[in-house]
Design a protein around this nucleic acid. Structure first.
Length: 319
RNA sequence: GGCUGGAUAGCUCAGUUGGUAGAGCAGAGGACUGAAAAUCCUUGUGUCCCCAGUUCAAUUCUGGGUCCAGCCA
Protein backbone atom coordinates (compact mmCIF):
# COMPACT_ATOMS: atom_id res chain seq x y z
CA UNK A 1 0.00 0.00 0.00
CA UNK A 2 1.25 3.40 -0.91
CA UNK A 3 1.32 5.49 2.22
CA UNK A 4 2.25 8.55 0.30
CA UNK A 5 -1.41 8.98 -0.40
CA UNK A 6 -3.88 10.21 2.12
CA UNK A 7 -6.93 8.24 3.09
CA UNK A 8 -9.33 7.53 0.19
CA UNK A 9 -12.27 9.90 -0.04
CA UNK A 10 -14.87 7.21 0.54
CA UNK A 11 -13.41 6.32 3.89
CA UNK A 12 -12.97 9.96 4.86
CA UNK A 13 -16.59 10.77 4.18
CA UNK A 14 -18.22 7.75 5.71
CA UNK A 15 -16.14 7.23 8.83
CA UNK A 16 -16.45 8.71 12.27
CA UNK A 17 -13.26 9.80 14.04
CA UNK A 18 -13.27 10.10 17.81
CA UNK A 19 -10.37 11.28 19.94
CA UNK A 20 -9.58 12.77 23.32
CA UNK A 21 -7.38 12.28 26.34
CA UNK A 22 -7.17 9.06 28.36
CA UNK A 23 -9.99 8.44 30.74
CA UNK A 24 -12.23 10.95 28.96
CA UNK A 25 -14.73 8.21 28.16
CA UNK A 26 -14.07 8.02 24.45
CA UNK A 27 -13.98 4.21 24.33
CA UNK A 28 -17.41 4.03 25.92
CA UNK A 29 -18.79 6.72 23.64
CA UNK A 30 -17.26 4.96 20.63
CA UNK A 31 -18.95 1.74 21.69
CA UNK A 32 -22.32 3.44 22.12
CA UNK A 33 -21.97 5.10 18.75
CA UNK A 34 -21.17 1.76 17.14
CA UNK A 35 -24.35 0.25 18.54
CA UNK A 36 -26.39 3.25 17.57
CA UNK A 37 -25.03 3.61 14.02
CA UNK A 38 -24.33 0.02 13.17
CA UNK A 39 -20.62 0.64 13.31
CA UNK A 40 -17.41 -1.15 14.11
CA UNK A 41 -14.53 0.22 16.12
CA UNK A 42 -11.03 0.65 14.75
CA UNK A 43 -8.89 1.30 17.77
CA UNK A 44 -6.33 4.05 17.31
CA UNK A 45 -4.04 3.02 20.10
CA UNK A 46 -0.37 2.14 20.04
CA UNK A 47 -0.58 -0.22 23.00
CA UNK A 48 -3.88 -2.05 22.66
CA UNK A 49 -2.49 -3.73 19.56
CA UNK A 50 -0.50 -6.02 21.85
CA UNK A 51 -1.92 -9.24 23.19
CA UNK A 52 -1.49 -9.48 26.93
CA UNK A 53 -1.44 -5.76 27.64
CA UNK A 54 -5.00 -5.87 28.95
CA UNK A 55 -5.49 -4.21 32.29
CA UNK A 56 -2.96 -1.42 31.84
CA UNK A 57 -4.32 -0.36 28.46
CA UNK A 58 -7.96 -0.46 29.55
CA UNK A 59 -8.86 -2.75 26.68
CA UNK A 60 -12.50 -3.23 25.76
CA UNK A 61 -14.02 -6.13 27.68
CA UNK A 62 -14.85 -9.48 26.02
CA UNK A 63 -18.53 -8.59 26.36
CA UNK A 64 -18.05 -5.31 24.53
CA UNK A 65 -16.00 -6.99 21.87
CA UNK A 66 -18.70 -9.63 21.43
CA UNK A 67 -21.31 -6.96 20.83
CA UNK A 68 -19.23 -4.66 18.64
CA UNK A 69 -16.25 -5.74 16.55
CA UNK A 70 -13.04 -3.98 17.62
CA UNK A 71 -10.33 -3.94 15.00
CA UNK A 72 -6.61 -3.59 15.62
CA UNK A 73 -6.81 -4.84 19.18
CA UNK A 74 -4.71 -7.87 20.10
CA UNK A 75 -3.11 -8.19 16.70
CA UNK A 76 0.50 -8.60 17.83
CA UNK A 77 2.61 -10.65 20.18
CA UNK A 78 5.06 -9.00 22.50
CA UNK A 79 8.00 -9.93 20.29
CA UNK A 80 6.64 -7.92 17.38
CA UNK A 81 7.33 -4.32 16.50
CA UNK A 82 4.71 -1.83 15.44
CA UNK A 83 4.64 1.69 14.10
CA UNK A 84 2.44 4.41 12.68
CA UNK A 85 2.82 3.15 9.15
CA UNK A 86 1.66 -0.36 9.98
CA UNK A 87 -1.23 1.16 11.81
CA UNK A 88 -2.25 3.30 8.88
CA UNK A 89 -2.23 0.49 6.36
CA UNK A 90 -4.02 -1.98 8.62
CA UNK A 91 -6.57 0.63 9.62
CA UNK A 92 -7.30 1.44 6.01
CA UNK A 93 -7.80 -2.22 5.19
CA UNK A 94 -10.14 -2.61 8.15
CA UNK A 95 -12.15 0.47 7.19
CA UNK A 96 -12.52 -0.68 3.60
CA UNK A 97 -13.76 -4.00 4.84
CA UNK A 98 -16.26 -2.44 7.23
CA UNK A 99 -17.66 -0.22 4.51
CA UNK A 100 -18.01 -3.22 2.23
CA UNK A 101 -20.26 -4.78 4.82
CA UNK A 102 -22.33 -1.63 4.85
CA UNK A 103 -21.28 -0.62 8.32
CA UNK A 104 -19.71 2.53 9.73
CA UNK A 105 -15.99 2.63 10.59
CA UNK A 106 -15.44 4.38 13.90
CA UNK A 107 -11.82 5.32 14.50
CA UNK A 108 -11.51 5.72 18.23
CA UNK A 109 -8.41 6.28 20.31
CA UNK A 110 -5.82 8.60 21.70
CA UNK A 111 -2.68 8.11 19.65
CA UNK A 112 -2.34 11.35 17.75
CA UNK A 113 0.40 10.34 15.38
CA UNK A 114 -1.62 7.35 14.22
CA UNK A 115 -4.58 9.53 13.33
CA UNK A 116 -2.30 11.84 11.44
CA UNK A 117 -0.50 9.03 9.64
CA UNK A 118 -3.84 7.60 8.59
CA UNK A 119 -5.40 10.87 7.47
CA UNK A 120 -2.44 12.58 5.86
CA UNK A 121 0.06 9.85 5.13
CA UNK A 122 3.69 9.50 6.07
CA UNK A 123 5.44 10.09 2.79
CA UNK A 124 7.98 7.90 1.05
CA UNK A 125 10.62 7.55 3.71
CA UNK A 126 11.61 4.00 4.60
CA UNK A 127 10.67 2.13 7.74
CA UNK A 128 13.10 1.80 10.56
CA UNK A 129 16.05 -0.54 10.30
CA UNK A 130 16.53 -2.11 13.74
CA UNK A 131 20.24 -2.77 13.29
CA UNK A 132 20.99 0.70 11.99
CA UNK A 133 18.86 2.32 14.62
CA UNK A 134 20.60 0.42 17.39
CA UNK A 135 23.92 1.70 16.06
CA UNK A 136 22.66 5.26 15.84
CA UNK A 137 21.45 5.09 19.40
CA UNK A 138 25.00 4.38 20.47
CA UNK A 139 26.36 7.34 18.56
CA UNK A 140 26.79 10.65 20.38
CA UNK A 141 24.16 13.20 19.41
CA UNK A 142 26.79 15.72 18.30
CA UNK A 143 28.16 13.29 15.72
CA UNK A 144 24.71 12.62 14.31
CA UNK A 145 24.02 16.33 14.13
CA UNK A 146 27.33 16.95 12.38
CA UNK A 147 26.51 14.30 9.80
CA UNK A 148 23.06 15.73 9.25
CA UNK A 149 24.38 19.26 8.94
CA UNK A 150 26.92 18.18 6.35
CA UNK A 151 24.71 15.93 4.26
CA UNK A 152 21.21 17.39 4.70
CA UNK A 153 21.29 20.99 5.92
CA UNK A 154 17.57 21.42 5.38
CA UNK A 155 16.66 18.57 7.71
CA UNK A 156 19.25 19.86 10.16
CA UNK A 157 17.48 23.21 10.24
CA UNK A 158 13.99 21.81 10.49
CA UNK A 159 14.10 19.09 13.07
CA UNK A 160 14.22 19.43 16.83
CA UNK A 161 17.96 19.08 17.31
CA UNK A 162 17.67 18.57 21.03
CA UNK A 163 15.40 15.61 20.68
CA UNK A 164 17.48 12.44 20.17
CA UNK A 165 14.58 10.55 18.64
CA UNK A 166 14.10 13.11 15.91
CA UNK A 167 17.80 13.29 15.16
CA UNK A 168 18.20 9.53 15.03
CA UNK A 169 15.24 9.13 12.72
CA UNK A 170 16.52 11.83 10.36
CA UNK A 171 19.97 10.28 10.13
CA UNK A 172 18.40 6.88 9.69
CA UNK A 173 16.40 8.05 6.67
CA UNK A 174 19.43 9.85 5.31
CA UNK A 175 21.67 6.79 5.50
CA UNK A 176 18.99 4.44 4.19
CA UNK A 177 18.12 6.56 1.15
CA UNK A 178 20.96 9.01 0.69
CA UNK A 179 18.23 11.50 -0.17
CA UNK A 180 16.96 14.75 1.27
CA UNK A 181 14.96 13.79 4.33
CA UNK A 182 12.41 16.60 4.24
CA UNK A 183 11.44 15.88 0.66
CA UNK A 184 10.49 12.35 1.62
CA UNK A 185 7.95 13.46 4.15
CA UNK A 186 4.27 13.85 3.41
CA UNK A 187 3.11 17.44 3.36
CA UNK A 188 1.14 18.14 6.46
CA UNK A 189 -0.95 21.11 7.42
CA UNK A 190 0.26 23.12 4.44
CA UNK A 191 -2.99 23.49 2.55
CA UNK A 192 -6.50 23.27 3.97
CA UNK A 193 -7.93 19.83 3.46
CA UNK A 194 -10.34 19.97 0.55
CA UNK A 195 -11.80 16.76 1.78
CA UNK A 196 -13.03 17.12 5.35
CA UNK A 197 -13.51 14.43 7.91
CA UNK A 198 -15.83 14.18 10.89
CA UNK A 199 -13.49 14.30 13.87
CA UNK A 200 -15.10 14.50 17.30
CA UNK A 201 -13.14 15.11 20.48
CA UNK A 202 -14.14 14.58 24.09
CA UNK A 203 -13.07 17.26 26.49
CA UNK A 204 -13.27 17.34 30.28
CA UNK A 205 -12.45 19.76 33.03
CA UNK A 206 -8.84 19.06 34.18
CA UNK A 207 -9.95 18.35 37.76
CA UNK A 208 -12.58 15.93 36.54
CA UNK A 209 -10.07 14.20 34.31
CA UNK A 210 -7.58 13.98 37.14
CA UNK A 211 -10.14 12.31 39.36
CA UNK A 212 -11.09 9.85 36.65
CA UNK A 213 -7.46 8.99 36.06
CA UNK A 214 -6.89 8.32 39.74
CA UNK A 215 -9.94 6.09 39.95
CA UNK A 216 -8.91 4.24 36.83
CA UNK A 217 -5.36 3.60 38.02
CA UNK A 218 -6.60 2.36 41.38
CA UNK A 219 -8.97 0.04 39.54
CA UNK A 220 -6.14 -1.29 37.41
CA UNK A 221 -4.23 -2.33 40.49
CA UNK A 222 -7.37 -3.80 42.03
CA UNK A 223 -7.82 -5.83 38.85
CA UNK A 224 -4.30 -7.20 39.08
CA UNK A 225 -2.01 -5.01 37.03
CA UNK A 226 0.93 -6.17 39.11
CA UNK A 227 0.23 -9.87 38.50
CA UNK A 228 -0.41 -9.23 34.82
CA UNK A 229 2.91 -7.44 34.47
CA UNK A 230 4.71 -10.25 36.26
CA UNK A 231 3.18 -12.74 33.88
CA UNK A 232 4.06 -10.65 30.82
CA UNK A 233 7.70 -10.44 31.85
CA UNK A 234 7.90 -14.16 31.10
CA UNK A 235 6.66 -13.45 27.58
CA UNK A 236 9.30 -10.88 26.79
CA UNK A 237 7.63 -7.67 27.90
CA UNK A 238 10.98 -6.08 28.66
CA UNK A 239 12.35 -6.83 25.21
CA UNK A 240 9.53 -5.00 23.45
CA UNK A 241 10.48 -1.38 23.17
CA UNK A 242 6.97 -0.28 22.30
CA UNK A 243 5.27 -2.06 25.15
CA UNK A 244 7.90 -0.95 27.62
CA UNK A 245 6.85 2.59 26.91
CA UNK A 246 3.35 1.89 28.14
CA UNK A 247 2.44 3.84 31.24
CA UNK A 248 1.69 1.44 34.03
CA UNK A 249 3.69 -1.53 32.82
CA UNK A 250 6.94 0.39 32.71
CA UNK A 251 6.55 1.64 36.28
CA UNK A 252 5.39 -1.72 37.62
CA UNK A 253 8.40 -3.40 36.01
CA UNK A 254 10.63 -0.95 37.88
CA UNK A 255 8.72 -1.72 41.06
CA UNK A 256 9.21 -5.45 40.55
CA UNK A 257 12.92 -4.79 40.20
CA UNK A 258 12.83 -3.01 43.54
CA UNK A 259 13.19 0.52 42.24
CA UNK A 260 10.44 1.98 44.42
CA UNK A 261 7.57 1.17 46.73
CA UNK A 262 4.15 0.13 45.52
CA UNK A 263 2.63 3.29 46.90
CA UNK A 264 5.12 5.47 45.01
CA UNK A 265 4.57 3.38 41.89
CA UNK A 266 0.84 3.97 41.95
CA UNK A 267 1.34 7.70 42.54
CA UNK A 268 3.87 7.86 39.70
CA UNK A 269 1.55 6.09 37.28
CA UNK A 270 -1.20 8.57 38.10
CA UNK A 271 1.20 11.43 37.53
CA UNK A 272 2.50 10.09 34.23
CA UNK A 273 -1.02 9.45 33.04
CA UNK A 274 -2.05 12.98 33.92
CA UNK A 275 0.88 14.43 32.00
CA UNK A 276 0.11 12.16 29.11
CA UNK A 277 -3.50 13.33 28.96
CA UNK A 278 -2.26 16.89 28.89
CA UNK A 279 0.01 16.14 25.94
CA UNK A 280 -2.87 14.46 24.17
CA UNK A 281 -4.98 17.59 24.57
CA UNK A 282 -2.18 19.68 23.15
CA UNK A 283 -1.97 17.35 20.22
CA UNK A 284 -5.67 17.22 19.43
CA UNK A 285 -5.99 20.97 19.81
CA UNK A 286 -3.09 21.72 17.51
CA UNK A 287 -2.70 18.86 15.10
CA UNK A 288 -6.25 17.89 14.32
CA UNK A 289 -9.33 19.80 13.31
CA UNK A 290 -11.52 18.50 16.05
CA UNK A 291 -15.10 19.31 16.84
CA UNK A 292 -15.13 19.34 20.62
CA UNK A 293 -17.79 17.88 22.89
CA UNK A 294 -17.46 19.03 26.48
CA UNK A 295 -18.32 16.35 28.98
CA UNK A 296 -19.24 17.33 32.53
CA UNK A 297 -18.90 14.89 35.43
CA UNK A 298 -22.67 14.40 35.76
CA UNK A 299 -23.34 14.01 32.09
CA UNK A 300 -24.20 10.55 30.80
CA UNK A 301 -22.05 9.20 28.02
CA UNK A 302 -25.24 8.03 26.27
CA UNK A 303 -26.20 11.65 25.91
CA UNK A 304 -22.78 12.59 24.56
CA UNK A 305 -22.96 9.72 22.09
CA UNK A 306 -26.31 11.12 20.99
CA UNK A 307 -24.85 14.57 20.40
CA UNK A 308 -21.95 13.16 18.45
CA UNK A 309 -24.30 11.01 16.38
CA UNK A 310 -26.43 14.06 15.55
CA UNK A 311 -23.39 16.06 14.50
CA UNK A 312 -22.18 13.14 12.41
CA UNK A 313 -25.56 12.88 10.69
CA UNK A 314 -25.34 16.55 9.79
CA UNK A 315 -21.86 16.05 8.43
CA UNK A 316 -23.02 13.11 6.31
CA UNK A 317 -25.81 15.22 4.78
CA UNK A 318 -23.41 17.84 3.55
CA UNK A 319 -20.51 15.62 2.52
C1' G B 1 13.31 18.99 81.09
C1' G B 2 18.55 19.07 78.56
C1' C B 3 21.48 18.80 74.07
C1' U B 4 22.01 18.88 68.76
C1' G B 5 20.11 19.67 63.96
C1' G B 6 16.23 21.81 60.97
C1' A B 7 12.56 25.86 59.57
C1' U B 8 13.79 29.23 52.13
C1' A B 9 8.68 28.46 45.65
C1' G B 10 2.81 23.67 45.87
C1' C B 11 6.80 19.44 47.35
C1' U B 12 12.23 17.95 48.26
C1' C B 13 16.17 20.91 49.12
C1' A B 14 20.63 24.28 47.73
C1' G B 15 22.47 29.17 48.73
C1' U B 16 23.62 34.14 50.31
C1' U B 17 32.05 35.30 53.73
C1' G B 18 25.37 40.80 55.45
C1' G B 19 23.52 44.16 49.53
C1' U B 20 15.95 40.75 49.66
C1' A B 21 17.55 34.01 46.44
C1' G B 22 17.94 29.13 42.91
C1' A B 23 17.76 23.75 41.29
C1' G B 24 14.91 19.22 40.70
C1' C B 25 9.95 17.69 40.84
C1' A B 26 4.89 19.40 40.40
C1' G B 27 1.84 23.08 37.80
C1' A B 28 1.07 25.93 33.07
C1' G B 29 2.01 26.40 27.83
C1' G B 30 4.24 24.36 23.41
C1' A B 31 6.55 20.95 19.73
C1' C B 32 5.77 16.41 17.28
C1' U B 33 6.07 13.17 9.61
C1' G B 34 7.60 5.13 10.30
C1' A B 35 9.47 3.90 18.92
C1' A B 36 4.32 8.66 19.96
C1' A B 37 1.17 5.89 26.72
C1' A B 38 7.34 7.84 23.76
C1' U B 39 10.69 11.93 23.11
C1' C B 40 11.83 17.09 23.37
C1' C B 41 11.32 22.66 24.41
C1' U B 42 9.67 27.16 27.23
C1' U B 43 8.12 29.06 31.96
C1' G B 44 10.38 30.22 39.09
C1' U B 45 8.87 37.21 43.60
C1' G B 46 8.73 33.60 47.46
C1' U B 47 6.06 37.32 54.84
C1' C B 48 13.87 33.15 53.03
C1' C B 49 9.14 30.69 60.78
C1' C B 50 8.04 35.04 64.38
C1' C B 51 9.77 39.22 67.56
C1' A B 52 13.65 42.32 69.05
C1' G B 53 18.88 43.93 68.63
C1' U B 54 23.51 45.25 65.87
C1' U B 55 24.15 47.61 60.99
C1' C B 56 23.71 52.43 55.86
C1' A B 57 21.56 47.50 54.83
C1' A B 58 19.58 41.16 57.98
C1' U B 59 16.80 35.80 54.76
C1' U B 60 22.16 35.71 56.22
C1' C B 61 25.08 37.94 62.57
C1' U B 62 23.25 38.18 68.03
C1' G B 63 19.33 37.35 71.76
C1' G B 64 14.46 35.56 72.77
C1' G B 65 10.24 32.74 71.11
C1' U B 66 7.36 28.99 68.18
C1' C B 67 7.19 24.46 65.58
C1' C B 68 9.55 19.79 63.66
C1' A B 69 13.26 15.72 63.92
C1' G B 70 16.95 12.94 66.51
C1' C B 71 19.64 11.88 70.92
C1' C B 72 19.98 12.12 76.39
C1' A B 73 17.14 12.19 80.86
Amino acid sequence: MNLDETLPTGIRQKSLFLGGPTASGKSRVGFLLAERLGGEIITVDSMQVYRGLDIGTAKPSPEERARVPHHLVDILDLNEAFDASQFASRAQVAATDILKRGRVPIFCGGTGLYFKALLEGLGESPGSDPVLRAALEQTPLEELLAELQARDPEAFERIDRKNPRRVIRAVEVLRLTGQNVTAQRARWKAEPVENPVFFAGLERDPEDLKRRIEVRVDEMFAQGLEAETRRLLAFGLETNRNAMQAIGYSQVVDFLHGARSLEDTIALIKLRTRKYSKRQMTWFRRQARVQWFAVSPEESLEKIAGSVADAFAKFRQTN
